[in-house]
Design a protein around this nucleic acid. Structure first.
Lengths: 183, 183
DNA sequence: ACCTGAACACCGTTCAAGT
DNA sequence: ACCTGAACACCGTTCAAGT
């Protein structure tokens, strides 16, 4: 079965959620699944590959969470930004992996594709969308990571942080509008 | 002597530069310094604290590298952005620590202070500078981290990447200008 | 004061062996 | 086919002991 691999990855993510990334040893994951650590290797292939699997899982969850609305691009950009931030708070231990590990997997390029689609619909000229989408991606991942790890200095907390993030998203919209007008 | 602590941190950073973060064990650092791992504890106090020390070292190096020019704010923002990116390429193994570990140290808030100073001189209203400076900080750290880890999808390489980053910085300048006009 | 040896409880990973 | 026991070379950290 290949859903065994999925089961292992799910349990690994749950473990990281509950006890942090440092607590995720092969042995601890195996115990959660009811196996020995050596039994995991055929399914997930070593710890490094397991971590890549978690990155993939997070990207998938982002895609699932996000209601792929066909509303106007501003609303979709807001929705994407909020989804990224929610993902960070849902998995504070695992989320930093997104920016720290190579985004080679197919589900990783989903984010880029979604972002480019939004910019396209906003009217951003085609030669500008790759760079602008990478910029926004870097901001969203960097911001959410910093919020969840405390890596960004002088970060607010709770409801204030939420309002500030909304204002940031509005600034991103403005950045896109400037790119459109500069055509 | 307290320069012994500094010597240990320097050797730890050099080790990470040469062989990656995963290779930085207490024992490996100690061997580089000519001691046993147990001798490090009084100076750096455990591995976690050593990593915090590396974060501090990177922030300090950023402050040193950056010619604190008194030119116009646009040039200073460019200089700051380039300094952050250069730091990432100088220490690709250690740089991701900046966003992944709590920025509690005094040298961490230096970056924020520098950024706020630039925005202030740009004419950004005082109640807008904290949020805008955090935005730019998140982008710079997120972008440079992603570039160095491959965590940002579809990232270009070499000289192309450099030109794209310059264009990104120009966009940041535009973002600031918009914030000034919105007063 | 500064350092080390020995020890403890853990790692990731391999591989022959079990069913 | 799927799993485990035993083993290997490593970890971080403590603490009594050395000089």
């Amino acid at each position: 079965m290949d859903d065994k691999r999925r089961l292992i990855l799910d349990q690994a993510l749950a473990l990281v959620d509950e006890r942090g990334l440092a607590a995720m040893s092969m042995r601890a994951v195996a115990e959660r699944v009811g196996l020995t650590s050596m039994a995991l290797y055929p399914y997930v292939g070593g710890k490094d590959a397991l971590l890549d699997g978690l990155v993939d899982l997070l990207h998938q969850e982002l895609g699932t969470t996000l209601e792929e609305g066909d509303g106007d691009w501003r609303r979709r950009l807001h929705a994407l930004g909020r989804a990224v931030r929610r993902l960070a708070y849902a998995h504070p231990g695992a989320f930093p992996l997104l920016l720290n590990r190579s985004a080679a997997g197919a589900s990783a390029s989903w984010l880029t594709a979604a972002l480019r689609g939004i910019l396209h619909d906003a009217g951003v000229p085609g030669d500008r969308t790759p760079r602008l989408s990478r910029m926004i991606c870097a901001f969203l991942l960097g911001y959410a990571t910093g919020e969840v790890t405390g890596g960004l200095p002088a970060a607010p907390r709770g409801e204030v942080a939420e309002r500030e993030f909304e204002a940031d998203l509005a600034d991103l919209v403005r950045l896109v509008e400037v790119a459109v007008r500069a055509t």
